Amino acid sequence: MPRAPKLIGARRKSKRVDNRQSASKRGYGYRWGKYSRQRLREYPECVSCGREAEATDHIIPVTGPDDPLFWDSSNHQSLCKSCHSSKTASESNGMKIGRDNYRRAGVRGYGG
């Protein structure tokens, strides 16, 4: 079967549906990076699979740095990249992430 011709200079359309702000505008700037690196030194294993953790995750999703749970250390867990990606994808389901529009059932560390 013949393939469609390549268009020179054409860009692929992104399949990403969300129009989130940049990470720093969502509160994940220098201060979060510094905090996350320190926390990962203290808790180096993924709480889900036991592999080396690469991300500090919010157990209950937050809406931004003004959310009271953003800096609450009891709302943080260490996850490997794979587990963090899976958790984030299941939470967002292509929608805006945040506590106001989040199904809490099955969230690790949450009683629901």
Score class of each variant (00 low, 15 high):
residue 30 Y to V: 14
residue 82 S to E: 08
residue 35 Y to T: 12
residue 30 Y to Q: 14
residue 4 A to R: 15
residue 37 R to E: 10
residue 95 M to K: 14
residue 89 A to C: 04
residue 104 R to P: 03
residue 58 H to L: 00
residue 52 E to R: 03
residue 108 R to I: 03
residue 39 R to I: 03
residue 112 G to Q: 10
residue 106 G to M: 12
residue 92 S to D: 10
residue 20 R to A: 14
residue 38 Q to K: 15
residue 29 G to F: 07
residue 61 P to K: 01
residue 4 A to K: 14
residue 105 A to D: 09
residue 21 Q to H: 05
residue 36 S to G: 07
residue 69 L to N: 01
residue 7 L to W: 04
residue 3 R to K: 15
residue 88 T to C: 13
residue 23 A to Y: 08
residue 105 A to V: 07
residue 22 S to G: 12
residue 106 G to N: 06
residue 10 A to G: 10
residue 99 R to V: 02
residue 51 R to Q: 05
residue 87 K to N: 00
residue 58 H to Y: 04
residue 5 P to I: 03
residue 51 R to V: 09
residue 95 M to C: 12
residue 106 G to I: 11
residue 16 R to I: 05
residue 62 V to P: 05
residue 73 S to K: 11
residue 25 K to L: 09
residue 53 A to C: 08
residue 94 G to S: 02
residue 6 K to Q: 06
residue 100 D to W: 04
residue 16 R to T: 10
residue 58 H to P: 01
residue 7 L to R: 15
residue 35 Y to N: 13
residue 93 N to E: 12
residue 5 P to V: 07
residue 94 G to T: 08
residue 63 T to A: 05
residue 84 H to C: 04
residue 21 Q to V: 09
residue 68 P to Q: 11
residue 1 M to P: 08
residue 102 Y to W: 09
residue 27 G to R: 11
residue 4 A to V: 10
residue 107 V to Q: 11
residue 13 K to G: 01
residue 6 K to H: 05
residue 111 G to A: 11
residue 64 G to W: 01
residue 101 N to G: 12
residue 65 P to Q: 01
residue 109 G to K: 00
residue 33 G to I: 07
residue 74 S to T: 15
residue 54 E to Q: 12
residue 1 M to D: 08
residue 80 C to N: 01
residue 35 Y to V: 10
residue 112 G to T: 11
residue 10 A to Q: 13
residue 43 Y to A: 00
residue 61 P to D: 03
residue 111 G to Q: 12
residue 56 T to K: 08
residue 21 Q to C: 06
residue 82 S to T: 10
residue 16 R to N: 09
residue 53 A to G: 02
residue 11 R to W: 05
residue 101 N to A: 08
residue 53 A to M: 09
residue 79 L to A: 07
residue 61 P to Y: 06
residue 90 S to L: 09
residue 47 V to Y: 05
residue 107 V to D: 04
residue 27 G to Y: 13
residue 22 S to V: 06
residue 86 S to G: 12
residue 104 R to F: 15
residue 14 S to E: 11
residue 84 H to D: 05
residue 47 V to Q: 04
residue 57 D to V: 03
residue 48 S to L: 09
residue 8 I to C: 06
residue 100 D to S: 10
residue 33 G to E: 06
residue 68 P to N: 12
residue 29 G to A: 14
residue 55 A to P: 00
residue 10 A to S: 10
residue 34 K to G: 03
residue 102 Y to V: 05
residue 73 S to W: 00
residue 10 A to N: 07
residue 66 D to K: 03
residue 85 S to Y: 13
residue 35 Y to W: 13
residue 2 P to G: 14
residue 52 E to W: 00
residue 104 R to Y: 14
residue 24 S to K: 15
residue 33 G to W: 05
residue 92 S to P: 04
residue 73 S to Q: 02
residue 45 E to C: 00
residue 106 G to S: 13
residue 43 Y to F: 11
residue 42 E to Q: 12
residue 110 Y to I: 15
residue 27 G to C: 08
residue 89 A to D: 07
